[in-house]
Amino acid sequence: LEAKFDDSTIFKKIIDSFKDSVTQINFVCSESGIEAQAIDDSRVLLVTVSIPPSCFESYRCDRPTTIGVYLASLAKLLKSANTNSSLTLYVADKPDELLLLFEEPKNQKSMEYKLKLVDITADMLEVDSDMKSDVTVEMSSVEFTKTVRDLTQLSDSFTVSVTKDGIVFSVQGDTAQGKVLLQPREDLADESNNLSISMSKTIDLSFASKYLLDIIKAASISNKIFLKFSDDTPALFEFKMEKGGGVGFYLAPKYDD
């Protein structure tokens, strides 16, 4: 594998977006890019990552390779990332380490790190990325982050309901309750503020607040978030990158007994 990002912060943002949710991950590299899937220890949150060749300045993968890494270690190396530097990932044919080369041609500087790869045995789950959903919402990731931060302070359970009137996020704590209603809007001046809802039926689902706090850490990937809800599947919270691919979080709901 030889894959070069023209801006090293792209890879840093991707890794930082889920490093607190899961401890280790297998990156599966092939001609069609880098894909990964990891599940948190409680098996409630599933992270999917897709970095297609379009995200790279140059991308080459001669034969399919799996790169297992501890995210805490990789995240430490990526602290060196900045918008002035490129980052090339190299993995040899017999992979036992990942080489990260940061280059800042303007400053005549380069940095080289090696990360020992780990053998991770993890189940791959069959996730249909075109999963049918009853409700799809596209909204500002900034707005979503603020709503989650504000409401999750009040309760460890978080409810999302969508009707034709809009999307309602609500919490009911022991001493306080809160509700945020967001209605579809079109902001011609700033498209990232738009909120659109497409739905075939109403939904009313509950989730554990702590996972939503993990999910919003990915908001730096995109100023938009796509939400997909159905009564009988995990919800999908997806951040898509400008150049294709992105990071998705499947979150299993809480149901009444």
Binding site: S42, V44, L45, M124, L125, E126, A208, P234, A252, K254
Partner: peptide, 14 residues
Amino acid sequence: EKTQFTIDDFFEIM
């Protein structure tokens, strides 16, 4: 009271 489901309740292992 609500029960927390897991991802395994919904997705099959490949």
